[in-house]
Design a protein around this nucleic acid. Structure first.
Lengths: 207, 207
DNA sequence: TTGACATGTAAACGCGCGTATACATACTCG
DNA sequence: CGAGTATGTATACGCGCGTTTACATGTCAA
């Protein structure tokens, strides 16, 4: 009774294509959430961009927040950053942050998380996603004590760069020498992730 | 029936007291914005807590967003953190972050900024405030090159800790040894603020 | 005392939102 | 074909929001 075709060959898609419409809605939602954040995007905007009717959002996803959850579930925040062991991890994290400073290469989910943190309705969704794709894998990657704390400290920098991008804008970041900013981020991630806190500089080292 | 005639001493406040009402509205707004963030607070909630009529919000402040701006302007984010030179600065910043992890001692404005970053209507207000009370003073405090970039890198950690608090919650932070987390934050701020990027660890140092 | 003004109140406006309902049309298959 | 269903559409509901308007009442000076 479903749309399972009984024949072996792929049937011609009908003009009315549930799967395709659903996919278009999901992609439209991803793009819009990524650009404007959850609260600023209306279901009518999503339907409009997908070329679909508003009611289909609720028909296919149940609610706006459920659609948001599906968008997050369908994407991964840190594509390859967490693969490859810990040797080069601070550098890979730093380069990930640098990548987010160019909208063209920023990952949609990073932008979504940057821009959608306000609404309490989706806070548990965001929290679970962040733990699932960032905190938990990163914790698992780390040896030594306090792995979860160290992963959380690294999240300070990752999420903080998002706040800075959104609130302060990209101008300051683009004026900087990318190599130097990368190096600075690497040492910040090293300080966050080190098994034990790194020794602090002698007081008064000139800043 | 005037009991209090005009006299030399400060007259009794009238039952209808513009200044006091305004102040109550401002304080109610500060508390509510701090607890729930801009979007989640309605002008009716503010008026209710202040024991005032809704229309007075607009009469005295013009609009909800203007009231928000006044709240920010009336408070300082980093009370004494930026006073006292650079010698102990990373430690003072780290301790400021630690203080925010206990709601009782968190500064209202930090909470407001944590929770109100989504709405584009107030984004310029937040941006200006953050530059005025954080980025600019911090930049001025730093010697050496790239002062503004280094201040921005420190803002990564400051704002990131806010995101983590709001999204991930305080549980992970409270489970940690405060002294160790403080030390870790100190080294992270040192890495952010150092005149030149600190040397990176030899690759493969065990994480 | 009285009239003008400052302050506070009550009620509604207009809007956009997420969502639900009732209907229309394309497709499938006996 | 023709019934039955999957898919899409048009429209409205109900609500809460920020804001505005019209009015009431306390205050103070002349």
């Amino acid at each position: 009774m479903r749309l399972e075709q009984t024949s072996g060959r792929p049937a011609e898609r009908p003009k009315r294509d549930r799967a395709a419409t659903r996919r278009r809605l999901l992609e439209a939602a991803r793009d819009l959430f990524s650009e404007h954040g959850y609260d600023q995007v209306t279901v009518r905007m999503i339907a409009g961009r997908a070329g679909a009717n508003v009611a289909l959002v609720n028909r296919y996803f149940g609610s706006k927040s459920a659609l948001f959850g599906e968008v997050l579930a369908s994407e991964s925040v840190l594509p390859h950053v967490l693969e490859g062991g810990t040797a080069d991890l601070p550098r890979r994290l730093a380069e990930h942050v640098m990548r987010q400073t160019h909208p063209a290469s920023a990952s949609p989910v990073s932008s979504i998380l940057d821009r959608s943190q306000g609404n309490p309705e989706i806070q548990p969704i965001i929290r679970r996603h962040l733990e699932r794709v960032l905190i938990d894998p990163l914790t698992g990657l780390l040896d030594g004590p306090d792995a979860r704390l160290r992963a959380t400290a690294a999240a300070f920098v990752l999420l903080g760069s998002g706040s800075v991008r959104r609130v302060l804008g990209l101008a300051d970041l683009h004026e900087a020498d990318p190599a130097e900013l990368t190096d600075r981020l690497i040492t910040m991630f090293e300080a966050a992730l080190a098994p034990r806190p790194l020794p602090t500089s002698p007081e008064g080292e000139g800043l």
